[in-house]
């Protein structure tokens, strides 16, 4: 049995380069670490968790003003473990914003954004913004009073931009008012556009981290 597995592994490794992937991603040299250095991995884990629970939620959720609220009530009361899946997605979202933000603070405080990691930092800023966008678009989807008015206020704030404010407001809402179009486009942004942006940026972010390695904590001489 072990022989067969070994052979199968060798066959796959020869073609996929599994050992190379393992060495470069999971077995790469690290500076003497501390728990603050794990926040990026925590963010990645939360992204995957949010993606998985989000996919499961989309099995029962429907983004229409007539049924959005009812479909979530159904997830909470009518489906086995619906409360758990939605609960993880709900609290995971809050936790992800917090963790991503602390991750950014740590990188700033330890000056890890300096040469040659400026691009890692810039892409990280993009990831932070996309994460906040996920929070903003996801908040509307339950289509309850809080969601409705939070989005009314949020889009109104975006509308205060000089000159192009009104255009931004209409583009966000899909018209002058908060409507079915708003819900639909927030849903599209929440499950397709922003996750695609996040996944792409995470890919580059990880590549850069593997390329440059993790930064050492600055010493007195730095």
């Amino acid at each position: 049995m072990a022989m067969i597995l070994k052979k199968l592994y060798n066959w796959l490794d020869e073609r996929l380069g599994l050992k190379g992937i393992y060495d470069n991603i999971l077995d790469r040299p690290e500076p003497r670490g501390n728990w603050w250095n794990t926040l990026g991995s925590a963010s990645l884990f939360l992204f995957i968790l949010q993606g998985a629970t989000g996919i499961f939620l989309s099995v029962y959720y429907t983004p229409s003003p007539d049924h959005a609220y009812d479909s979530i009530q159904y997830i909470m009361d009518g489906v086995a473990f619906g409360w758990l899946v939605r609960g993880i997605h709900h609290w995971g979202a809050t936790l992800m914003v917090v963790i991503v933000f602390i991750h950014m603070l740590r990188v700033f405080v330890t000056a890890s954004f300096k040469y040659p990691r400026e691009l890692t930092w810039l892409i990280g800023v993009g990831l932070l913004l996309a994460t906040l966008g996920m929070g903003f678009t996801g908040y509307l989807l339950p289509w309850n009073q809080r969601a409705y008015w939070a989005t009314t206020v949020g889009t109104q704030i975006a509308g205060t931009v000089p000159l192009i404010g009104e255009f931004i407001l209409k583009a966000l809402r899909g018209g002058t008012d908060l409507s079915a179009l708003t819900l639909q486009r927030f849903f599209a942004a929440h499950i397709w556009m922003l996750p695609a942006v996040l996944a792409g940026l995470i890919g580059i972010h990880l590549y850069l981290i593997i390329r440059h390695g993790e930064s050492h904590l600055p010493t007195k001489e730095d």
Partner: peptide, 15 residues
């Protein structure tokens, strides 16, 4: 902990 309830969640209407 996440996966088993998720499977149950998916097949619930059939049960």
């Amino acid at each position: 902990v996440v996966g088993l309830p998720a499977v149950y969640y998916l097949i619930d209407p059939a049960l």
